[in-house]
Write a protein that binds this DNA or RNA. Structure first.
Lengths: 214, 214
DNA sequence: ACAAAAGTGTTTTTGTTACACCCATGT
DNA sequence: ACATGGGTGTAACAAAAACACTTTTGT
C-alpha cells in the first residue's frame, strides 16, 4: 500500500463582534501577517469542538455562539499542502471581549471587516461569505441577540442590525418588528448614559437560542 | 513523529428526483443495506469534483445541479474509522433518470424519502437535512427548475413544488408568482397528453442557473 | 355528452413602508 | 434653556391569500 498523501483537515473560525459601531473580526497572527483562528482537527475530535478549542486557545473566547459556514477544499487553496477547511463563524457579545483594542505583537487583534488586511490563504473569502450569511440571517432569525450583552437597549440592538446590514433602519418599524417577535423582555432597569432620556434595558427571553421567524 | 491516526475525508451525495409524484433519493448498495453515493476524496481532488465523480461512478448521473449541504464530523458517526463527510445534494431532472424503477441486485435504486430503509451511518439524517434545505429554497429561489425536464407544463412544475413541500398550492397564485419571476418562457409547443385540454410547454430562461428571489 | 385537466381576475387580508413629534435626562 | 437620544401611532401601499368558472381536448 502506498503511503497516503497527507491531507490536512482544519477548522477556521470567523469571530465577529460589534465594536465602536463597526463589525469586526478577531484575527490571529501568522508568520507574515494575519489569519483566522483555527488549526488541524485532532483524531477523535468533533468538528465543532475543534472550532471552539482553537477559539479558546488562540483568542481566549469561550461560550460564544458558533455555526458551521461552509467547507473549503479547492486543491490549490493552500500552496504548502492539501488542506481542507471546515469554516465556522462565531458571534461575540459586546462586553465579553477578551482582547485589548490595540493588540501587542503576537496577540490577536480586532479588525473592521471593511478594512481587512491581506489574510492568509482564502481567509478573506471566508470572512466575506460569513458576513453575507450573517446579514441574511438578520432577516429571518433572532441571531443578532448573540452579539448583544446580557442587557441592552433597543437602540443598541438597532445599531447592531444597521452595522451588519450597512444601511439605516426606521426606528419605529424596527421596534415594532423586534417586539412582535417576542424574543426579548424588559428588565425594568434603565440605562442612564449621556445627556438624554434614559433607555429601557431589555434582555433575551431565551439567551443562547436562535429562533427562526415565521 | 508518531504515525498519524487515519482520518477519512469523504463526500456523500443525496441525489433527488421527482418520480411518480414522489420525492425520491437514489441509493447505492452497501454490504448489508443501502447508503448514499459517495466515497473518499482523492489527494488533489476538489470537493465538488469528488462528489460529481462518485455520482457518475456509482449511479451514472452526470451534469446535474450540485450544492454543498453540510459537513458531518462527529467522531462516532462511523464506528470503523474516523470519517468526516462533506455532504452534497444533487437535483436530477425528470427524464434524465439513468436507472430503472425496479433495481436489480447491486444496482442503485430510487426510494421515496417518506419510506426510506435504514441507511448506513448517519445517512438518514443527511437525507432529512437535504430535504429541509430543498424545501426552504423553494421559497426564495428558482431551484425547482433543476428538477424539471427541458420542457414542462406549469401544472408539472406546481406538482414538483407540492411534492417537496408536502402540501397543496393554489393554482392561480402559483402561476402568478412563477411568471412574475421571469425565469421561464413559453416554447409555443403544447403538451397533449390525456383526455383534456392541452397544456402550454415552458422552458427555463437560464437553464442550469438558480436565481434568488428579491 | 361527459370526464379531466388547463387556463384565467378580482377581492380581501395581511404585512411593510413612510413619516413627525413629545419626553426625560445631563450640562 | 438647550442639546441629545428615547419613545410612540397612523395612513398609504404592496404583497399574499382566498376564491369559481370557462375552455379544450379525448373518449
Amino acid at each position: 500500500m502506498p503511503p497516503r498523501a497527507p491531507l490536512a483537515l482544519t477548522t477556521d473560525v470567523v469571530p465577529f463582534a460589534i465594536r465602536a459601531e463597526r463589525l469586526e473580526v478577531l484575527l490571529a497572527r501568522h508568520s507574515t501577517g494575519w489569519r483566522l483562528p483555527g488549526g488541524p482537527i485532532e483524531p477523535g475530535e468533533d468538528l465543532d469542538a475543534a472550532a471552539r478549542r482553537y477559539l479558546m486557545e488562540q483568542t481566549g473566547l469561550r461560550d460564544v455562539y458558533l455555526e458551521q459556514l461552509y467547507t473549503f477544499g479547492q486543491p490549490d487553496r493552500d500552496p504548502g499542502q492539501r488542506a481542507v477547511a471546515v469554516a465556522y463563524y462565531a458571534l461575540v457579545p459586546a462586553g465579553s471581549l477578551p482582547v485589548d483594542a490595540a493588540p501587542a505583537v503576537d496577540r490577536p487583534g480586532w479588525v473592521g471587516v471593511d478594512a481587512l488586511p491581506a489574510l492568509a490563504l482564502d481567509h478573506g473569502e471566508i470572512v466575506a461569505l460569513a458576513h453575507r450569511r450573517l446579514a441574511a440571517k438578520l432577516a429571518y432569525s433572532t441571531i443578532a441577540l448573540q452579539l448583544m450583552p446580557e442587557r441592552f437597549t433597543l437602540s443598541e440592538l438597532q445599531a447592531v442590525h444597521e452595522t451588519i446590514l450597512g444601511e439605516p433602519l426606521d426606528k419605529r418599524n424596527f421596534r415594532k418588528r423586534i417586539l412582535a417577535l417576542d424574543c426579548i423582555e424588559m428588565t425594568g432597569e434603565m440605562a442612564r448614559r449621556g445627556g438624554h432620556r434614559p433607555a429601557r434595558l431589555y434582555r433575551a427571553k431565551r439567551p443562547g437560542q436562535v429562533d427562526f421567524i415565521k
